[in-house]
Amino acid sequence: MTAQASSLLAGRRRPVALALFLLVQMFAAVFFVGDAIADVLEGDVGPHLYFEMLVALALALGVGLGALALRQTLEEMKAQDVALASARGALGDVIAAQFTAWGLTPAERDVAFLALKGLDVAEIAELRGRAAGTVRAQLARIYAKAGVSGRAQFAAWFVEDLLGEGLETEPQHG
């Protein structure tokens, strides 16, 4: 497979491309089967017919295998979606539980979520209709309750869990 073809078949458009390919293959299979039957009915039996039957068989097999491949691709994509959704949900649950454990107020929770999503002070202030100074003070309280030095450490608090034992194993391999 060439690089262009593989990039065309990559990602979310792959099932559509596979389905179109299957469709074309199916039309060809139906054509050859019909033509072979017509030849048999007309008593036109010979090498030509045997070759046509071979082509029809190959196309039919191609359709069957292609259909199985398409189903597999669709199932893999569905599994990825489910895994992504549950990972998202799980991370959200972990964050919410930790906010509760730190004793954040509802307003602080909102600000903390927005900060984790990467919004800066000005953006959070605009979104919540508060003064930038208010948001800065809320962030300071959040960091104090979480016991972190600032935004980077605050975000790292949650990412650290996802990274697992990365820090300890790295030097041994390196």
Partner: peptide, 19 residues
């Protein structure tokens, strides 16, 4: 009509092996 037959056959195969 032949195209319709092809579409129908593919859909029926898909009824056994599809998602």
């Amino acid at each position: 009509g032949w195209i319709g037959l092809g579409l129908l056959a593919l859909r029926l195969i898909w009824g056994f092996v599809g998602p």
